[in-house]
């Protein structure tokens, strides 16, 4: 989803240091370097993607975010970005803690399980939803801990994680999410992007 990367890029100031956890083929890193002159580093599990990044001249470390975040020193990045991966970890809480340790701020995006189409799929068809943002079926999905924007919002409050901004994304439209409009935005956003610290 290109819009997601655009929103993330807009959230970032120029010339900062960013760690992209689960950086894939480096598309986001390339965008951040080009548009914001950002010093970007990536961590990526899939060998093929690691090579794609290397060929593009991007800095990437092959490794597993679940077990290898310890190698990054405290507060060594201005921002840590985790794009649509939080739900795929065995222990998202531990990963999130690590991200907040490494980065002064953290940007997390999640596919929203509270989106109305997801809800109707379960409600009317009694089947696990398959959508553009959640393209896998129940038996082959990498997502172990699906959550909604509301879930993550409450989680942050509970754990005393400071929520600076939450942005809901639906196709090309974005909107600010606050405590006051959380219910409605949780219904109509396909994606939630959180800026935490």
């Amino acid at each position: 989803m290109k819009k997601e990367f655009k929103v993330i890029a807009d959230l970032l100031p120029k010339n900062v240091r960013v760690l992209d956890v689960g950086c894939g083929d480096g598309s986001l890193m390339s965008l951040l370097i080009k548009e914001k002159n950002i010093e970007a580093r990536g961590l990526e599990l899939i060998e093929e993607n690691v090579k794609k990044c290397i060929y593009k001249g991007l800095s990437v470390i092959e490794g597993n975010a679940e077990t290898e975040l310890h190698q990054f020193p405290n507060q060594s990045f201005d921002f840590v970005v985790l794009s649509q991966t939080l739900q795929a970890f065995y222990n998202p809480e531990k990963v999130l803690k690590d991200l907040l340790r490494i980065g002064k701020s953290v940007i997390i995006s999640i596919p929203n399980f509270g989106y109305w189409k997801v809800r109707t799929s379960l409600l009317f068809f009694g089947k696990m939803p398959v959508t553009k943002t959640l393209p896998n079926t129940w038996y082959n999905t990498p997502n172990l801990h699906m959550c909604t924007i509301k879930d993550l919002f409450h989680f942050c409050l509970e754990k005393n994680i400071k929520i600076n901004r939450v942005i809901g994304v639906n196709e090309d439209k974005t909107s600010e999410i606050k405590k006051s409009n959380l219910e409605i935005k949780n219904l109509f956003s396909k994606l939630g992007i959180f800026l935490l610290s």
């Binding site: 580093r41 060998e47 690691v50 090579k51 990044c53 290397i54 991007l58 800095s59 990437v60 470390i61 092959e62 490794g63 190698q71 990054f72 020193p73 060594s76």
Partner: peptide, 20 residues
Amino acid sequence: KDTVIALNASGADVSFAEIK
């Protein structure tokens, strides 16, 4: 990887790939 960790800790620009 220990070399990578040391480079990272020093703030160096480091990539790492393991060839299977």
